[in-house]
Design a protein around this nucleic acid. Structure first.
Length: 215
DNA sequence: GCCAACGTTGGC
DNA sequence: GCCAACGTTGGC
C-alpha cells in the first residue's frame, strides 16, 4: 500500500478516536442500564459446521427433554458477560431465528439455570472447542433455557426494523434496540420497556400497523 | 453466495 | 498499546 494512503488513513482514525473521546467526556455518564429481559439467537435451518449440525429451532427446543436445553457454544465476551453477570432464573427471553429465510422472533423462553461451565469448550470434536481454555480456569459459560410459549404471531426482523427506524426519528421504546445497535451479539439484553413493547406487537395485525404508519 | 460490520489476534 | 489483517456473523 502506498505510504501516503496509509498515513492518511492513520490520521483519519486518530481524529475519529479523538472525536470519540471528546464525545465520551461531554456525554453525562448514564446510569448503567439494568437488563432483565433477553433475546437469544438460534439457527432454525440446517447448516453443518465441522461436521456438526447447527440447526436448533424453537420447535427443536420444545422437543428436548423437559423442553429445556443448555445454551452452549456462546463464544463472545459481551454475550458471556451478560449471561454470567445479569441473567437470572425466572427471567424471560425472546427466541430469535437467525441466519435463515425469515429472521425474527418466534417465541418466549425462561431462564431456568444461571451461568455454569460450558463443557463444549473442552471437547476437541465440538465446533466451539477452545484450546486456550482450561478446566482450572474455564473461559465460557452457558445457562439453561426452557420453552414457554410461541408468540401469537411471528414478529419479523423487517417489522422490528421499521419500528426501530421510526422510533429513532421520532423517539420511542425501540430506538436503541440491541438487535440493531449491536446486531451481531447472539445474546442480547432488553429493557423492560423494550420487551413489553415487542410483546404487545403480537396482539396487532401487522397490516393494520402498516396503515397506521402511512396515515 | 456476497459482503458489510465488527470482534479478535498478533506483530511491532 | 496501536492498528492492520483476519475471521465470523447474519441480513440480503
Amino acid at each position: 500500500m502506498p505510504h501516503g494512503k496509509r498515513k492518511a488513513k492513520s490520521e483519519k482514525s486518530k481524529l475519529a478516536k479523538l472525536a470519540k473521546l471528546q464525545k465520551k467526556k461531554d456525554t453525562p455518564k448514564a446510569a448503567p442500564k439494568i437488563f432483565t429481559k433477553w433475546l437469544m439467537k438460534s439457527e432454525p435451518e440446517s447448516r453443518i459446521e465441522n461436521g456438526v449440525e447447527m440447526k436448533f429451532s424453537f420447535d427443536d427446543l420444545k422437543k428436548e427433554p423437559n423442553e429445556t436445553t443448555c445454551w452452549d457454544g456462546v463464544r463472545n465476551y459481551q454475550a458471556r458477560n451478560f449471561m454470567r453477570d445479569q441473567m437470572k432464573v425466572g427471567q424471560s427471553a425472546f427466541y430469535y431465528h437467525s441466519n435463515c429465510k425469515e429472521p425474527g422472533i418466534v417465541g418466549i423462553t425462561e431462564i431456568v439455570k444461571e451461568g455454569y461451565v460450558d463443557h463444549t469448550q473442552f471437547d476437541s470434536k465440538d465446533p466451539h472447542f477452545d484450546k486456550s481454555s482450561s478446566k482450572e480456569d474455564p473461559k465460557w459459560i452457558m445457562v439453561d433455557v426452557k420453552y414457554v410459549r410461541k408468540l401469537k404471531r411471528f414478529i419479523s426482523l423487517k417489522e422490528l426494523k421499521q419500528i426501530h427506524l421510526e422510533h429513532k426519528t421520532n423517539g420511542g421504546p425501540l430506538e436503541k434496540l440491541s438487535l440493531f445497535t449491536r446486531a451481531r451479539l447472539s445474546v442480547q439484553p432488553l429493557t423492560e420497556d423494550e420487551f413489553k413493547f415487542i410483546l404487545q406487537l403480537e396482539e396487532k395485525d401487522p397490516d393494520e400497523e402498516l396503515k397506521e404508519e402511512k396515515s
